[in-house]
Nucleic acid binder design. Structure first.
Length: 940
RNA sequence: GCCCGGGUGGUGGAAUUGGUAGACACGCAAGACUUAAAAUCUUGUGACCAUUUGGUCGUGCGGGUUCAAGUCCCGCCCCGGGUACCA
């Protein structure tokens, strides 16, 4: 018997799999399908990130498991190769993005191959591949050519809308739109083509508009809302400003309700669903019109609390609100316009970081409260957001904290409309209130008051029920080079789609972004375009999430050049059954793909409305940073290290320590033992003469070695993995020293797949030892009939492993394997047939070693085609059956089969011990707990 | 602030969903083999007393329900994530 040599067998089986195309899959209507998908990576240049393999291993295990169970498994991989990260890397290294992308992909592939994944590489896709992005562009054209009918709740061809306008005008159209328009058919038919196009833009699902956008000068592009965090760009952390620009947007807001409702159909974590719900942000309320003194126009506000209308003591407009220009009185003009100007110059971040005092100015005008005709001053303040609701609010200082603070700041009246509530220090925003000073609703509760005010205002034609969503349309233009070009050209300022031929990304000399926002594609000459129509090509490119919003469909039929995928294949593979990836894509990618899926459903391209049935979020893997505490003060000229537990504002310097030396790495009690201190000193010889202050003694290394139990506690901080902190672990290095199978099992063994954890390598020897033990055990197996004892272990293992994989509890599966092997090891001998079954169980986790075993067993086909073993309960000595007897009512017993007790014997046993107290009977069964009239449980 | 998660030995983590808490692994200790080391194997390992056969306390803290609570309910504390002038 040779020793377990992972390096040798892993490369052997990897080349076998790739030569035999073991994992390529074809559609087969006679077989049930499973679609297991990983979030495909950005090939960013730093190679695979340590967190990545975690999810890939999990999905690979699941895919291999299902393949054993006889499913036709689609398990593909590809690259999200367009977009900012790829381009940033190219810019940093001064190479063309196409080149660096190619290089990075090769590197990724090499790393992926090393881990033995069962991907069908025949189906690989790249979003930057023209054969792929042809269909991204195609979907864009469909969006451009569609509008959203709110009556039937689906997208429809724009031609049907035009036909309606021609015959009925805007009447009877309830569409998702930027602005509500009204016109007659006669008016419509008299419009110029430019005007018609303007009107249609108002309805198209992909539309051009002049709007305030998140402009990031450093990246030279605009960003979608979810790409901006805390006023800076998510990627790179550069400041983001508000800028008015002509941009393409996608009308995702049309789908807000469906995106919200259909969350009930999918199996995502509650926290992720909650994030999506918050992002969609549905709120039901009332639009209320306030008349303005001496003005024709009315001021419309949105509120969810019409019940507090008697508490309105001022109105507030966003500085961008168009009424600000009209209603500001002449004496206030100078002040108000200066304020508006000041605010417009602020970046998003500055507006948010408005710590403490609210700002604002009075416009000089007054609104009329429609409920009691009271005169209310109208103010302008930056705390009101232009983009939400109507950009104006009715301010109720008694019920809203922001309004309260504003009122305090500017000495505006705070009307108390709540019975028995003190408003001395803050507003009262809870809804458990009884009203006062509110003639129509005095004494009522929240529900009744809201209903009454709503009815009153609707009757007066001053109010209208309205559902508002926080979800904003997604900006779809990027002023960057490395993205899908729009299939759009302009003629006389009217955009037209290009359908006759695919628009390819033209070559340009310089692909760097510009600071002023002119797209790099502007550098392309007329002849650089493969197709050039009209006066001007669209020069923006699509954002990174365009290609990733539908890629899961292309894997189904990656080489189709007639359609994005054939309907048979789309129908066969259907939804992704298991989608594995990080939770950081909660509101970006996951929302956009859900949106596109629904749109493609409306088009009739696909037959399902949700792309991902089940989402598994793998936890992030961070790195703990371990440092020794070096006192600034030396002792007798020698440096002194002290325990991290002893430092309190004392002067000390952190000396980062290589994590290989640290015990309990990443925990509160991380420490170095004398032997490890010795290693540390070898690594950092400049501390050769250092002293270590432990339990009030100053000891040198030599002295410490006489006290092997002494511990020097290290300072642990949680952070990133970085070479700078000596806390990186390279997955490839682990493959080198332990093998991919050990790494796969170990990553699963670390803990629940969805939990965040710092990476550590502390326990890897246990997993490695397990595989070695398995190797030995296998080679000791004899060609004999399996004993009952070993079968009992096997069948328990099959049961537990199958159930746990089904529940994505991969860490406990590895433990179960270990228990089985340990128990078999205690037996005098083991049969080959038992091992044969075990090898199948092991193969999703450790495919290479399992394949090696399978080969040795003389089976020529690859192990992944072997059926998953089934278990037989009769081998479970501890198996139980339910044994109902009557005892002060109905009770349930679980009695071991092995004891083969008769009914009388059990009853006798139980009745003999009949007590009011629970009791334990250890003679016939291990434990019986009996309570008269309640459940009795007999534990083994 | 609000919304989700979560808190179990020295460490990572189990616990059939209300039924012997601490599986499995790491670490540590002792022993076997060895000239020695590595590797491997065996044993022990929540804490505190008793040192045998036993006892007491133990799942962030304080209450409660129950024959029985890590698990359910109420009130706190702490950690992680998301989100925010959304009216």
């Amino acid at each position: 018997m040779t020793n377990y040599n992972p390096k040798e067998i892993e490369s052997k089986w990897q080349s076998f799999w790739s030569k035999e195309k073991t994992f390529s899959v074809v559609e087969d209507p006679n077989k049930k399908k499973i679609y297991v998908l990983d979030m495909f990576p950005y090939p960013s240049g730093e190679g695979l990130h340590v967190g990545h393999p975690l999810g890939y291993i999990a999905s690979d295990i699941f895919a291999r498991f299902k393949r054993h169970q006889g499913y036709n498994v689609l398990h593909p991989m590809g690259y999200d190769s367009f977009g900012l990260p790829a381009e940033q890397y190219a810019i940093q290294t001064g190479q063309h993005p196409a080149l660096t992308t190619e290089k990075n992909i090769n590197r990724y592939r090499q790393q992926l191959d090393r881990l033995g994944f069962a991907y069908d590489w025949e189906r690989e896709i790249r979003t930057s591949d023209p054969y792929y992005y042809k269909w991204t562009q195609w979907i864009f054209i469909q969006l451009f050519d569609s509008w959203y009918d709110l009556v039937e709740n689906k997208a429809k061809p724009i031609t049907s809308l035009i036909a309606h306008f021609e015959s009925e005008g805007s009447q009877d159209i309830n569409a998702s739109c930027t602005q509500k328009l009204t016109f007659t058919p006669k008016q419509w038919n008299s419009y110029s083509s430019e005007k018609k196009e303007d009107v249609l833009m108002n309805y198209r699902l992909a539309y051009l508009s002049m709007s305030m956008v998140n402009w990031c000068p450093e990246l030279g592009t605009v960003l979608a809302n979810d790409e901006v965090k805390d006023g800076v760009s998510e990627r790179g952390g550069y400041p983001v400003e508000q800028k008015e620009m002509m941009q393409w947007s996608l009308r995702i807001s049309a789908y807000a309700q469906r995106l919200l409702d259909d969350l009930d159909q999918v199996d995502f974590t509650t926290s992720l669903k909650e994030q999506q719900r918050n992002w969609i942000g549905k709120s039901e309320g009332l639009l209320i019109n306030f008349e303005i003194e001496h003005q024709k126009e009315e001021l419309q506000v949105f509120t969810t609390r019409p019940d507090t209308i008697y508490g309105v003591s001022f109105m507030t407009l966003a500085p961008e609100h168009k009424l600000v220009q009209h209603i500001t009185t002449s004496e206030k003009k100078k002040e108000v316009f200066a304020y508006v100007d000041l605010i417009s110059k602020k970046t998003e971040r500055e507006r948010q970081a408005n710590n403490g005092k609210p700002t604002g100015v009075f416009t000089g005008s007054y609104a009329i409260n429609p409920i009691n005709n009271e005169k209310i001053p109208i103010w302008v303040s930056e705390y009101v957001l232009h983009g939400y609701g109507t950009g104006a609010v009715m301010a109720v200082p008694s019920g809203d904290q922001r309004d309260y603070e504003f009122a305090k700041q500017f000495n505006i009246e705070i009307k108390n409309i709540f019975e028995g509530i003190s408003l001395d220090s803050s507003a009262y925003s809870e809804k458990d209130v009884i009203y006062k000073n509110s003639p129509e609703i005095n004494g009522l509760n929240y529900v009744d008051a809201t209903a009454k005010i709503t009815t009153l205002l609707v009757q007066k034609k001053k109010g209208r029920k309205k559902i508002n969503f926080r979800l904003r349309d997604a900006i779809f233009s990027r002023q960057r080079y490395w993205g899908e070009p729009f299939p759009i050209y302009y003629k006389d300022n009217i955009p037209y789609t290009i359908k006759e031929e695919q628009v390819l990304l033209p070559k340009v000399d310089k692909y760097l972004p510009t600071r002023d926002g002119r797209p790099p594609l502007g550098r392309a000459k007329k002849e650089d375009w493969n197709i050039f129509l009209g006066d001007q090509m669209e020069l923006n490119t699509m954002p990174g999430w365009a290609g990733s919003s539908w890629y899961f469909l292309r894997y189904m039929d990656p080489k189709n050049d007639k359609k994005l995928a054939s309907s048979e294949k789309l129908n066969y593979w259907n939804q992704v059954d298991l989608y594995v990836g990080g939770a950081e894509h909660a509101v970006g990618h996951l929302l956009y793909s859900r949106f596109w899926t629904k749109f493609l459903f409306d088009l009739g391209v696909i037959s399902f409305q949700e792309p991902f049935k089940k989402l598994l979020n793998q936890g992030m893997i961070g790195g703990a940073i371990e440092s020794l505490c070096l006192k600034k003060e030396k002792k007798e000229g020698r440096p002194v290290f002290v325990c991290s537990t002893k430092i309190d504002n004392e002067d000390f310097v952190k000396i980062p320590c290589h994590i290989d030396f640290v015990s309990d790495y990443g925990s509160k009690t991380s420490h170095l033992l004398p032997k490890q201190i010795q290693k540390f000193i070898k690594w950092r010889p400049e501390f050769k003469h250092a002293l270590f202050e432990i339990s009030n003694q100053f000891l040198s290394v030599e002295e410490l070695l006489n006290h092997p139990e002494k511990k020097l506690f290290t300072l642990t901080e949680h952070g990133k993995m970085s070479k700078r902190y000596f806390n990186t672990i390279d997955p490839e290095k682990i493959c080198d020293s332990y093998g991919a199978d050990t790494l796969r099992c170990y990553e699963m063994f670390l803990g629940p797949i969805d939990e965040h954890k710092p990476w550590n390598v502390n326990g890897i020897s246990g997993v490695s030892g397990f595989l070695k033990k398995t190797w030995t055990l296998f080679h000791q197996a004899k060609k004999v009939a399996p004993s009952n004892e070993e079968l009992k272990i096997l069948h328990k293992t099959i049961k537990k492993v199958s159930e746990d994989i089904e529940n994505y509890s991969f860490n406990t599966v590895v433990s179960t394997f270990m228990i089985a092997v340990n128990e078999w090891n205690k037996l005098s001998q083991i049969s080959l047939t038992t091992m044969e079954n075990f090898v199948v169980l092991l193969s999703p986790f450790a495919p290479h070693i399992s394949e090696e075993f399978w080969f040795k067993l003389g089976n020529k086909t690859s192990i992944s085609t072997v059926p998953w073993p089934s278990y037989n309960e009769s081998y479970f000595v501890e198996s139980t059956y339910e044994y109902p007897i009557s005892f002060n009512g109905k009770m349930r017993f679980k009695i071991p089969l092995s004891l083969s007790l008769t009914k009388e014997e059990v009853e006798k046993e139980v009745l003999k011990n009949k007590k009011t107290e629970p009791f334990i009977a250890e003679k016939t069964v291990k434990r019986i707990i009996v309570v008269p009239g309640k459940i009795v449980n007999i534990v083994l």
